[in-house]
Design a protein around this nucleic acid. Structure first.
Lengths: 228, 228
DNA sequence: CTGTAAACGTACGGAATTCAAACGGGAATG
DNA sequence: CATTCCCGTTTGAATTCCGTACGTTTACAG
């Protein structure tokens, strides 16, 4: 996961798509735009964004159908989805029930309102996404300055260790498998051995555990690692 | 929702009906099968299930019509409905959803996919099923954090004991044979002795029964084990 | 009360997992 | 262009965990 929350927009109307990208990037989000429903499904298998904006009607695969399929997959089961619908397309009840979207907006909508809802939804799902500094105990990670401190003392981390710590600190307590860590820290399309994660966790531990401080990284045998 | 969700299947094709009952019961659902649309309407006045699987074409009263009528009654207004449609009726998809069905599947369909959609839909209706913590009495299992607590005190379980407890807690009260436990906890394609289950249940008991607390695992002689 | 089958508890050898350390290649930097 | 830093793999050791075996105990039927 990058410093900025990633938002995927699936919208076939060129004008709207461009508008959304412009506004979202101005807010500091990383934006991916897709025009076809079926392409979106493939892309979402590779990498799950932090939030999805989905048009109701799409070529290839409708937004309704895509939303439904996403809800049956574990990785995207709780992915926040905002639906965009044209006025009068369907009854309100069907919208709510049939799709499983978390929110929807009726076109034409107010851009500031959409941005507000996005921020609210991201904050609800993972508050640390919107913060520049992640803190836990005497550990502090500043994404903006790319610095890590333990008890006011700056630590020196390699790029991979930094991203690894950043990712782990975004979801304290949660256990990630080595595969998940590789996908999110190294990249989904990269091929490296699972054991490499062990090595980097070891390096990260050595770097952040100066003196005899408590190790904030927990290894869960047979499952993976977690922070805090 | 009861311990085991109840699912009503309205389908006139004998073969499909039997197949569905078999698979659904294997998943632990309570199943009622009905062959006629008009009979289904009467039965649904008596008792509303947790989910309804409805064939498109039915003798007596079509699935479309039944669906529409159900949506006008308060008791069944939000009842989750999955429609089964034959190929070629696909153009009618939108109509199916517009009629008020929450989901649909085109025959012939993949059974695992149907099961996945059922599970996803039940979770949506009852969000507690979506929660990543399983609780029973003073026992608490957090799947996301991979932690188990008994009365605020963390327990240390091996990977297999953890999965075993997780699986048992997913269906409190239900009895599983050793074979079922091996299939679901160890894996379907693995061959280990039945007695191994005994040993792990023993280890699990020793781990979670600290002090003189009540043992939540019940031995059913000649049948297997159950939780709660 | 007794016999039998199922379930339990323990012990043990082997397998799997994790961790630390070392190595060589390659990229970034000055 | 040279050096430094970083990364991914490998090796070996320590630890934990798992599956089987076997003797004992318990539950149920006759």
């Amino acid at each position: 996961m990058a410093i900025a929350p990633k938002i995927t927009v699936v919208e076939d109307e060129e004008a709207l798509s461009v508008l959304l990208r412009y506004n979202l990037e101005a807010e500091g989000y990383v934006v991916e735009t897709i025009t076809r429903g079926d392409e979106a499904e493939i892309a979402l298998r590779e990498k799950v964004p932090d939030l999805l904006i989905l048009d109701w009607m799409l070529p290839g695969l409708s937004g309704i159908e895509l939303c439904r399929r996403l809800r049956t997959r574990r990785e995207t089961e709780i992915l926040p989805i905002i639906m965009l619908t044209a006025r009068g397309e369907e009854s309100e009840r069907v919208r709510g029930l049939a799709t499983g979207a978390d929110d929807y907006m009726v076109k034409p909508f107010s851009t500031p309102e959409l941005l507000a809802r996005i921020k609210a939804m991201l904050r609800r799902v993972n508050p640390s996404l919107l913060s520049h500094v992640l803190s836990f105990g005497d550990l502090k990670l500043d994404r903006e300055q790319h610095r890590v401190f333990r008890k006011e003392r700056e630590l020196k981390l390699g790029p991979t260790e930094f991203r690894l710590l950043e990712f782990l600190m975004q979801s304290p307590g949660r256990v990630f498998s080595r595969g998940q860590l590789l996908d999110n820290v190294w990249g989904a399309d990269i091929y490296v051995d699972d054991r490499t994660v062990d090595v980097h966790v070891g390096r990260l531990r050595k770097a952040i555990n100066i003196g005899r401080s408590v190790d904030p990284i927990r290894t869960v045998r047979g499952a993976g690692y977690s922070f805090g």
